[in-house]
């Protein structure tokens, strides 16, 4: 099949564009040469004419300057966008970290609520308890919390007894005693705080007036009412704690029972002393 004339012309034109002469380009196609030669001459003229078309140096400089300005503006825009993105990313990282810490913290605190003395989260549980005591609004509230925590220690003692961990029983007995001591201390602090303050004076203070002012009478009444409530709370707590410990005693291994009996007796004594102190209205 013979080659199309436009294909042959294209091949010759390619030769011409590469810088070869019309004669050289036509050597391979002698038969088509008469037809192609004039067309290649026209093409040659076009090539020369086109090569002469050049943008003026002024325009080139102007266009180049405009391009530089545009590239600069584009880079500025991209950098601004990147800065905003970095800021957003930093902010997102910070927020995620805060939330993570918060969730991990809440999770840890929640899980630690059931921790036992021989578990890693037990110190967290004690720290949370301490924080609750610190954040309690009133001294009565603090005393109630200490009573509640004494009950908790008794619950932990039950579990330790079940697991046969005798050393923990002694420690927990001491912890219960400490909580009950703190109930007395808190109660005493509340009473002292409710005594009307006196202005500092260099002269010796006059002897106390036996007659009570209406306001001090009211405070005494309130203090007595609070002590009474606390006494009831402690009595209920004592009953529940001793119940719990006696149940534990029934289920405890035989070798643990003497130590547990001792602990129950000690806890009962500590409760009685605390209740007695509250009743008498004085701290030890």
């Amino acid at each position: 099949m013979s080659q199309k004339i436009e294909d042959i012309f294209n091949e010759c034109l390619e030769c011409l564009l590469k810088g070869e002469s019309i004669e050289d380009c036509l050597k391979a196609y002698p038969e088509q040469a008469p037809e192609l030669e004039p067309l290649l001459k026209t093409s040659s003229a076009l090539i020369q004419k086109s090569a002469a078309i050049q943008a003026t140096p002024e325009f080139k400089a102007r266009a180049h300057s405009q391009l530089q300005k545009m590239l600069y503006a584009k880079r500025e825009k991209a950098e601004r966008k990147a800065r905003i993105l970095i800021w957003h990313r930093k902010w997102a990282v910070a927020m995620t970290s805060v939330l993570l810490i918060l969730f991990v913290g809440i999770g840890t605190v929640t899980v630690s609520a059931n921790a036992l003395p021989d578990e890693p989260l037990y110190p967290v549980k004690l720290a949370v308890e301490q924080a609750r005591v610190t954040l309690a609004f009133s001294d009565t509230g603090k005393a109630k919390l200490h009573t509640q925590f004494a009950e908790r220690r008794a619950g932990e003692m039950t579990e330790m007894a079940r697991q046969g961990k005798i050393d923990k029983i002694s420690i927990l007995t001491e912890e219960i005693a400490k909580h009950l001591d703190k109930v007395c201390v808190v109660e005493a602090t509340e009473k002292i705080a409710k005594v009307p303050s006196k202005a500092p004076t260099l002269t010796p203070s006059p002897p106390p007036t036996p007659a009570l002012t209406p306001s001090s009478r009211a405070e005494t009444y309130d203090g007595e009412k609070g002590a009474e409530k606390l006494k009831i709370t402690l009595s209920q707590s004592k009953a529940e704690t001793l119940d719990t410990l006696r149940n534990a005693l029934d289920k405890a291994p035989e070798e643990l029972k003497p130590r547990l009996k001792q602990a129950i007796a000690q806890v009962a004594k500590d409760y009685d002393e605390t209740i007695s102190i509250i009743e008498s209205g004085s701290s030890p």
Binding site: I5, E6, F9, N10, L13, P38, L39, T42, S43, L46
Partner: peptide, 12 residues
């Protein structure tokens, strides 16, 4: 190629 050939031929 055809447009090119015809274009140059027309010019000529």
């Amino acid at each position: 190629k055809a447009l090119q050939y015809n274009g140059i031929a027309a010019l000529r």
